[in-house]
C-alpha cells in the first residue's frame, strides 16, 4: 500500500514539475527583448569604478553589498560545519613518489596562477573568487597527497585570515565615512587601491575557508 502511495506521489511530482517547466518555458519564449539599460549604466560609470573590467566593478564596487554578504555566507557555512560534532580523520596517506614530485611541480604553478588571476581581475576575467577557489583547490591537492597542512580550527591566526576578507571589505566600506561620503562609496582616486586591498584579503579568506569546508568539519584524532 505504501508503495502504491509512493508511486502516486512520484507521478504527481512529475506532473507538477513538468507543468511548471512548460509554463516557465512559455514565459521565457514570450519575454520582451532584454533591456540594455543596466549594461549601459555600468558602461557609463566604468571610469568611476577604479577598475577596467566591468564584472569586477560590479562585484566590488557597484554591488558591493552582495559580495560583502556573500563573504559572510561563506563564514556562516564554516561555522555551521564546525558546530557539528568532530568527524573522524581519514587514515593517513602513504606518500607516493609520483604524486610527491607532481605536487612539488604543480604547487608553484598553481600559486603563480592564483597571483595571475588576482592581478588579471582588474582588467580582464578573473578576480578574488576564481583565485580563492584555485587556492582552495591547491590546499585540497596538498591535503590529498599526504602533506599535513597546519589547518586547525583552534588556531587563532587561521580564524583571523578567514575573517580578513570580510574585515577588509568593511574597512574599505567605512572609508567612505572618513571622507564624508556614504557607507560603501569609494573616493574616486582611491577606488583602485581599495578594490585591490579587498581582493587580496578576500582571495586569502575564500581560499582558506573553502579548503576548510572541504575537510567537512573539525577533525578528531584517529
Amino acid at each position: 500500500m505504501t508503495r502504491f502511495i509512493w508511486h502516486a506521489v512520484r507521478l504527481l511530482a512529475a506532473f507538477l514539475v513538468a507543468g511548471m517547466a512548460v509554463g516557465l518555458a512559455f514565459t521565457i519564449v514570450s519575454l520582451p527583448p532584454a533591456s540594455p539599460e543596466l549594461a549601459l549604466t555600468v558602461a557609463d560609470n566604468m571610469t568611476k569604478s577604479g577598475v577596467s573590467h566591468p564584472v569586477t566593478a560590479v562585484l566590488l564596487n557597484f554591488r558591493g553589498y552582495d559580495t560583502l554578504l556573500e563573504m559572510a555566507v561563506l563564514l556562516l557555512a564554516l561555522v555551521g560545519t564546525w558546530s557539528l560534532a568532530p568527524i573522524q580523520e581519514m587514515p593517513p596517506v602513504t606518500p607516493v613518489a609520483v604524486l610527491d614530485s607532481l605536487t612539488r611541480l604543480l604547487t608553484p604553478l598553481i600559486m603563480l596562477t592564483v597571483g595571475y588571476l588576482l592581478w588579471a581581475g582588474a582588467h580582464a576575467p578573473g578576480g578574488a573568487f576564481q583565485a580563492g577557489a584555485l587556492l582552495a583547490a591547491l590546499g585540497v591537492l596538498l591535503n590529498l597527497t599526504g602533506w599535513r597542512l597546519p589547518i586547525d580550527a583552534t588556531q587563532c591566526y587561521l580564524r583571523a585570515i578567514m575573517a580578513a576578507g570580510l574585515i577588509a571589505f568593511l574597512l574599505a566600506a567605512a572609508n567612505g565615512w572618513v571622507h564624508g561620503m556614504h557607507f560603501f562609496s569609494y573616493p574616486h582616486d582611491q577606488a583602485h587601491m581599495l578594490i585591490q586591498f579587498i581582493e587580496t584579503f578576500a582571495t586569502l579568506s575564500i581560499g582558506i575557508t573553502l579548503f576548510t569546508l572541504f575537510l567537512l568539519g573539525r577533525t578528531a584524532p584517529h
Partner: peptide
C-alpha cells in the same frame, strides 16, 4: 561569460568533485 567559466572550472572541476568523492569514500568506508 569567461568570468563565470573560470569560477565554474575552479569550483566545479577542482573543489566539488574532490568534495563529493571524498564524502562518498567516507560513507562507503564506514
Amino acid at each position: 561569460a569567461p568570468d563565470i567559466a573560470l569560477a565554474e572550472i575552479a569550483i566545479g572541476a577542482g573543489l566539488t568533485g574532490a568534495l563529493l568523492l571524498s564524502a562518498w569514500a567516507r560513507l562507503e568506508r564506514s
